[in-house]
Simulated scan of single mutants.
Amino acid sequence: MFPLQLLALTAVSTATLAPPQEEQEKKKQEVEKKKQEVEKSRYDVMFRRGDLLEVPRTLFTHFGIYLGGDRVAHFIPDILPVVSSDQFRIKQVVTNTRLILGVLAKCGSIRVDSVEDFAYGSEILVNPMDRMCSRAALQEEDVACRAEKLLGNVEYSLLWYNCEHYVMYCRYGTVMSFQTFQFCKTVRKLLLSRRVAKATALLLLCLLLYLGAASVGLVLLTALLPFIIWMAA
């Protein structure tokens, strides 16, 4: 009888000492919550609400507005909101496939992500546009409020309305993109040059001789198009 009582007491004491599964889960959640709070406070020390954040990518630079509490509002092309209503999937980090398809379909969303997801492993620059933009930055709270007000699905354009246009409006009250300007300037240099004008004139002249038909329209095109390119260069 005594061994049975001893065994029962041992089992009871073991059950008492072992924490229930619910308590373990609760403790795990508390630890995770504390980690998140530490992470949030760390970023709140590094950035201020309304700061413009810039991260260099392979082919372009991405921009966002820091909202505080490890949250960044940014405009990114994304095809998923168009083809799915699953909010859990939509809230996941935007993959390159989603991004490229979003650019092609001209659809995107102004969304809020963590600083880590926004940076995607790149170095973060803070308010670099303050030195480039001729306009003074708005009040920090006004910047953040503008960024939050525009959250949602928005038509995306690589040249005419991208992430830089979005942050420039939020922080400086102007819709412009230095990246777009630089791209258009480069294209203009490549296409609208005197060398291109000469090459165009030569090609059109060869076409005219090859066809052997000197129509008025073709003659005008041969003379006018190189002239326009020459004058625009």
Rank of each mutant, 00 (worst) to 15 (best):
L67N: 07
F118G: 02
V82S: 15
R171W: 00
A232E: 15
V45G: 01
L52W: 02
R111Y: 06
G152S: 05
A137F: 06
K33Y: 02
T16C: 10
N162V: 00
N162T: 07
A8C: 08
Q24S: 07
E22T: 12
R48E: 12
D51C: 02
L158T: 13
T58P: 00
I229S: 10
R146F: 10
R89W: 11
L158R: 06
W160C: 11
G64R: 07
C107S: 13
K35F: 01
L9W: 10
R49G: 07
V196F: 07
E30Y: 07
V72Y: 02
L158P: 01
Q182P: 00
K189D: 11
R57L: 04
T58A: 15
R42M: 09
N153Y: 06
F63R: 11
C184S: 10
N162Q: 09
S109H: 04
I90W: 05
D113A: 07
V167W: 08
A147E: 05
G108Y: 04
L208C: 11
Q5W: 08
T58H: 14
L221A: 15
P56Q: 05
G217S: 12
M129Q: 10
S41A: 13
N127L: 06
K40D: 09
V103D: 06
Q139I: 02
M46T: 14
I100S: 12
K91Q: 15
V31F: 02
Q182R: 13
S114F: 00
A18K: 11
R135G: 04
L125C: 12
F227E: 13
K149T: 08
L207Y: 11
G121M: 07
E140T: 09
E25Y: 06
E32K: 03
V94P: 12
G69W: 02
E22W: 13
Q139V: 08
K106M: 00
L205H: 07
L52D: 06
A136T: 14
E39H: 04
R57F: 05
K28T: 13
G212E: 00
S177P: 05
T61R: 11
T58L: 14
L202V: 14
C145V: 08
P56E: 00
Q29R: 13
K28V: 08
Q29C: 04
D86E: 11
G108P: 09
T222Q: 10
R89P: 01
V82F: 12
L211A: 08
R188P: 02
V187Q: 09
L151H: 03
K27L: 13
A15G: 14
W160L: 14
R98T: 05
D130V: 13
R131E: 06
S177D: 07
K34L: 01
D78N: 15
L207P: 00
V112W: 01
V175M: 14
L80R: 07
F183P: 01
R89H: 09
F118T: 02
D117E: 11
L125K: 15
K27S: 09
